[in-house]
Each structure stands twice: as C-alpha cells, then as structure tokens.
C-alpha cells in the first residue's frame, strides 16, 4: 500500500489530455522517481497529485484518505510538501524568512524545524539573513527544499530538483534527498537525469506519452535492457 498514490489518473490542460490511466506512488520513507522523455507527462503527473490540475478520472490517496478533490493549500495541511521546478523561492525575502513562509500554516513554534533544516543544509545557516535571490542555483534549490520541509510533510514532492544546477552540486543534493527519506519523509520526484535519480530510488515509474511503460524498483529499471536503450542512453 502506497503512502501517496495516484491511481488510474487521466488529466490534462483544458480539453487536451496529457495523462492516460496512469499510476504513480511512493511508499513510506522511500524515494520514488518518475522518469521518461520530454512530453511524457511527468510534471503533469506531479501537478495532478498536488491538486494544481483537476483530475478527470482516477483517485489520489494519501495515507488511506481520498484527497482527489481538495485544494493544494489543504494538502499542505494534510502532510504534502511541493517544490515547483521554477520560481520556487521568494527572492526578496531572506533565507530564514523563506523557511518561515514554508511553515506559514503551522500554528506552533517552528524553531525546531528551522534547526533541523540548518542541520541538513549547513550553508543556509551561514546565509540565513541573506536575500534568497542573491544565492547560487544550488543554494536556492536547498532553500526551496527546506521551505517545503518546514511543515514536516509525510511526502515531499520535487519537480526536477536538478534543473539548472551543475552535476557536482546535483550529486550533493541527491545525497540530501536520500538523507531526508532516511529520516522518514517519503520523496516523490520527477527527474530529467533518469540514471542518477533511479540510482537513489526505491521505485521508478517510466512514463511515455502519458502512459505507464515500466514500473519497477530503481535498480531493476537501471538493469532493464529496454529501459536502458530507450531512455537511459544505452
């Protein structure tokens, strides 16, 4: 049983459907990656799961509860965190204020969570009073992930976390993602760099033209000849 499960989902923009009867999900404390070529519907699946797009068919289940029809803000309260691909920070707020905004809906004190995030991303501690817009690409991404973690979500959803950052920094970021999962937060991400993503993933979903093509553990997908040839470049 998945912690977060998009079951049999069909959705799209306006009258044009992008996803057709797709299944994606993530287990508690694990990492799932959605991979596939451009236009496969990866980001669309992400948006549908978070409620940014209306779902035409199918169900979205979080921790046994049907959340198909509740708005994104409510999903945050239910324990979902979302990091969009672009514009995922508040550039003219300081790093600390960015993190505080992540916990906007939390009623209680958020200092503990702040400490946890500074521990996870020590760079941010050094730059806590700097404007987020002045940081480097990798650091911004850390702010973005940190912001989404502030509500202590059960599931963290990352839309292309490695977009626009260098390979070395990406590796560091993926390590952090593994660390986050190890501490009990399930991570569901969409990745362009399929190889690296599958390496750290427990589960992988290969989408093509809006449909599930392969679903397996990360390692077996990496070893699957067809997947390698078609999507991982040999």
């Amino acid at each position: 049983m998945y912690l977060l499960f998009g079951e049999n989902i069909t959705c799209g923009y306006g009258s044009i459907d992008i996803l057709f009867n797709c299944d994606v999900g993530v287990n508690e404390g694990e990492i799932s990656s959605i991979v596939g070529p451009n236009g496969a519907g990866k980001s669309t699946a992400m948006k549908a799961l978070f409620g940014l797009l209306p779902v035409k068919q199918g169900k979205i289940i979080l921790d046994g509860e049907d959340i198909t029809n509740i708005p994104p803000q409510q999903r945050v309260l239910k324990g979902m965190g979302f990091v969009p691909q672009t514009n995922n920070i508040f550039p003219s707020l300081t790093v600390e204020e960015n993190l505080e905004m992540g916990a906007f809906v939390e009623q209680h004190d958020c200092t503990k969570m702040l400490e946890y995030i500074y521990e996870l991303f020590p760079v941010l501690k050094d730059k806590q009073y700097q404007l987020a817009g002045e940081l480097s690409g990798g650091q911004r991404q850390q702010v973005a992930v940190g912001r989404a973690l502030m509500t202590k979500p059960k599931v963290l959803m990352l839309d292309e976390p490695s977009a626009g950052i260098s390979p070395i920094i990406m590796e560091g970021l993926f390590n952090k993602i593994t660390e986050i999962a190890n501490q009990g937060t399930a991570v569901l991400m969409v990745e362009q760099n399929a190889k690296q993503a599958l390496k750290i993933s427990n589960l992988g979903f290969v989408l093509n033209q809006g449909k599930n093509l392969f679903t397996d553990t990360g390692n077996s997908l990496l070893e699957n000849k067809k997947v390698r040839q078609a999507f991982l470049g040999g």
């Binding site: 994104p72 945050v76 969009p84 514009n87 995922n88 920070i89 508040f90």
Partner: peptide
C-alpha cells in the same frame, strides 16, 4: 512580502 514576491509559491505555502 512573500505574496508580492511570488504569488504562486505563496499560495502553495498556504498564504
């Protein structure tokens, strides 16, 4: 300030 900075993200943060 967050809302004026990035409306979409502010909405996602529950503002």
């Amino acid at each position: 300030r967050a809302y004026s900075d990035n409306k979409e993200l502010a909405l996602l943060s529950g503002i």
